[in-house]
């Protein structure tokens, strides 16, 4: 099999890479682009540790081929912060102790960002269902749900400020 060349956008930057046609987007991100924030917990779409967005859509990057990134916009955990300014989700995860080992955290942050992008005022239940594709074994999810709730408040405040 011959390698394919792919032109894509990752976290706003134009990127070209070459990969095997069988290679997953997760492997490309981690092994070819050095973006190790996305994790492999299962490789079968069951844990969400590899969550990224493709054109704003939340996906498991272990279930997407690298070649499918052609012409798309990929978002990963590395793109959440704006320079040295953390995204409210990142800040609230730290302040609420929503991570213990932290290996699930990148996936949760990307999934929670996708939730807040479409619904900045989620109920507890909406948060829990939106994050149901992400496994965390350390926290029992309690502090994660609280952090997302607090971040949603911050995001709404930011949006209100921008409107003014």
């Amino acid at each position: 099999m011959s390698a394919v060349q792919v032109s894509t956008t990752v976290n706003g930057d134009a990127i070209d890479f070459v990969c095997q046609p069988t290679e997953t987007l997760l492997d490309v991100l981690r092994n070819r682009l050095g973006l190790i924030g996305s994790k492999e917990g299962c490789g079968t779409g069951d844990c969400g540790a590899c969550s990224v967005t493709v054109d704003g859509q939340l996906v498991c990057s272990c279930l997407v081929l690298g070649a499918e990134a052609e012409g798309r916009k990929i978002g990963t955990v590395e793109g959440l912060a704006d320079g040295d300014k953390l995204h409210p989700l990142q800040k609230q995860f730290i302040d609420n102790a929503a991570l213990q080992c932290g290996v699930c955290t990148p996936g949760f942050l990307v999934a929670a960002k996708a939730l807040l992008d479409r619904n900045p005022n989620p109920t507890e239940q909406e948060i829990r269902y939106a994050l149901a594709g992400n496994l965390c074994r350390c926290t029992g999810y309690d502090k994660i749900v609280r952090a997302v709730n607090a971040a949603a408040r911050d995001v709404r405040k930011q949006q209100a400020r921008k409107k003014r």
Partner: peptide
């Protein structure tokens, strides 16, 4: 008290290096 953890930023930005993260 409950100060932020020192490895927090690395872990929310994807920089922290776990078992499979070094080459």
């Amino acid at each position: 008290s409950r100060p932020p953890r020192p490895d927090g930023i690395d872990k929310v930005t994807g920089r922290a290096r776990y078992g499979a993260d070094v080459s």
